[in-house]
């Protein structure tokens, strides 16, 4: 509300910060199915704590369009009856939320101590060479994004690569990384070793 004559806003003199903003993106709305799913998640919290579902909502956004955009945050805010600023607060904190477009497979290599000692850096380097992209980049085919990640809690099977925030590849070796990429291209997620706990079950 600009009621003061000496206070222009949004005009040419408006001085924006250098903060990197998330892209506005296409207009966003949850599909009916996901909206129903999120409503179900919301019902697990007391009505006044509806905003507790914000993490779940952002994961659903990512499920629908791979990464978070400003329009999506606005939609989530409306859905949870909070302000977009509160959604942005959460979205910018968690590294699992992608702030820019990513490939079909997001390879997140753990770089914390156990994995680093077991050669995680070599794994990252090999993947980077094979894909021809640096860390944080997406390859031209739009298939792969390479990221480094902090401890994934699977130190006994180091080094670990997490794909798309939920799939596991344990005991990654630099020698087999090239093959892993090719297998992922051909066979999809079944090329991954999976979590040994689940496999053993």
């Amino acid at each position: 509300m600009s009621f003061h004559p000496l206070m222009p806003y949004g005009s040419e003199g408006f001085q924006k910060s250098e903060r990197t903003l998330m892209a506005r993106g296409e207009p966003f709305a949850f599909t009916a199915e996901r909206a129903a799913k999120l409503e179900d998640i919301c019902s697990k919290y007391p009505p006044e704590r509806r905003k507790s579902a914000v993490l779940a909502a952002l994961y659903l956004v990512q499920e629908q369009q791979q990464y978070i955009t400003a329009s999506a945050m606005r939609h989530v805010a409306e859905f949870l009856r909070i302000t977009p600023a509160e959604v942005e607060d959460v979205a910018t904190y968690y590294v699992m939320f992608f702030k820019a477009p990513v490939g079909k497979y997001v390879l997140q290599v753990c770089r914390t101590l156990s994995c680093a000692l077991a050669g995680a850096e070599r794994v990252t380097e090999t993947l980077s060479e094979k894909l021809g992209i640096g860390i944080g980049e997406t390859d031209p085919s739009g298939m792969f994004t390479l990221l480094e990640f902090e401890c994934l809690g699977a130190c006994d099977r180091a080094p670990v690569v997490m794909v798309n925030n939920e799939h596991w590849h344990e005991k990654a070796r630099p020698e087999t990384c090239a093959k892993l990429v090719d297998d992922l291209r051909q066979r999809g997620l079944s090329a991954l070793s999976g979590c040994h706990l689940k496999v053993e079950q």
Partner: peptide, 10 residues
Amino acid sequence: DAQINIVDRG
């Protein structure tokens, strides 16, 4: 109206 937030926490 919570318009202000903290971004990039850390």
